[in-house]
Simulated scan of single mutants.
Amino acid sequence: MPESGHTWQKAFKGAPAEAAHVRLWARGRVQHPDAPLIADELFVAVLGSGATVIDMAISTAGTRIRITAEGPDPLPLIHSHGPGWSILNGLCQRTGLTTDETGLWAQLGGHQ
């Protein structure tokens, strides 16, 4: 039986002030307490690469939540596995680089 879910996408300006909007946007879509922090860490990592626009996505399937941040260009290694990577790995079940290497994703379980 397939799991049903939802997907939300939004483009944010590549500016530090947008991080607060990213956190609010994530909080308004899913009820997991770590989702805003995870969205923020992904956004900041892509922002650090110099992206002028960052595409954010949140997808749900059953109790799983996947958050993605993507920019227009491949991420330098420091931005795809920098200091925020430790936070993501501590909070998420899985993390990774998008197949085109322009973004990062994180998967977490639903809030119990």
Score class of each variant (00 low, 15 high):
Glu3Cys: 08
Ser4Gly: 14
Gly5Met: 04
Thr7Phe: 09
Trp8Gly: 00
Trp8Phe: 09
Gln9Cys: 09
Gln9Glu: 11
Lys10Trp: 08
Lys10Phe: 07
Ala11Gly: 08
Phe12Ser: 01
Ala15Ile: 06
Ala15Gln: 13
Pro16Tyr: 05
Pro16Trp: 02
Glu18Gln: 12
Glu18Tyr: 03
Ala19Gln: 09
Ala19Gly: 08
Val22Gln: 00
Arg23Phe: 05
Ala26Asn: 07
Arg27Pro: 03
Arg29Trp: 01
Val30Ala: 04
Gln31Asp: 13
Leu37Ala: 12
Ile38Phe: 05
Ala39Gly: 05
Phe43Ser: 00
Phe43Arg: 00
Phe43Thr: 00
Phe43Tyr: 13
Leu47Tyr: 12
Gly48Thr: 09
Ser49Trp: 06
Ser49Ile: 09
Gly50Met: 07
Ala51Cys: 06
Ala51Met: 02
Ala51Gln: 02
Ala51Trp: 04
Val53Glu: 12
Asp55Phe: 11
Met56Tyr: 02
Ile58His: 02
Ala61His: 08
Ala61Asp: 12
Gly62Ser: 08
Thr63Lys: 13
Thr63His: 13
Arg64Ser: 15
Ile65Ala: 04
Arg66Ile: 11
Ile67Ala: 04
Thr68Arg: 11
Thr68Pro: 01
Thr68Val: 12
Glu70Thr: 06
Gly71Ile: 05
Pro74Gly: 03
Leu75Ala: 07
Ile78Thr: 13
Gly82Ser: 05
Gly82Asp: 05
Pro83Gly: 10
Pro83Ser: 13
Gly84His: 03
Gly84Phe: 00
Gly84Ser: 02
Ile87Trp: 04
Leu88Glu: 03
Asn89Ala: 08
Asn89Met: 10
Gly90Tyr: 03
Gly90Pro: 03
Leu91Thr: 06
Leu91Asp: 03
Cys92Phe: 07
Leu97Val: 13
Thr99Phe: 10
Thr99Ser: 13
Glu101Leu: 14
Glu101Lys: 13
Gly103Trp: 01
Trp105Leu: 06
Ala106Ile: 00
Leu108Thr: 06
Leu108Val: 12
Gly109Trp: 08
His111Gly: 09
Gln112Cys: 14
Gln112Trp: 14
Gln112Leu: 15
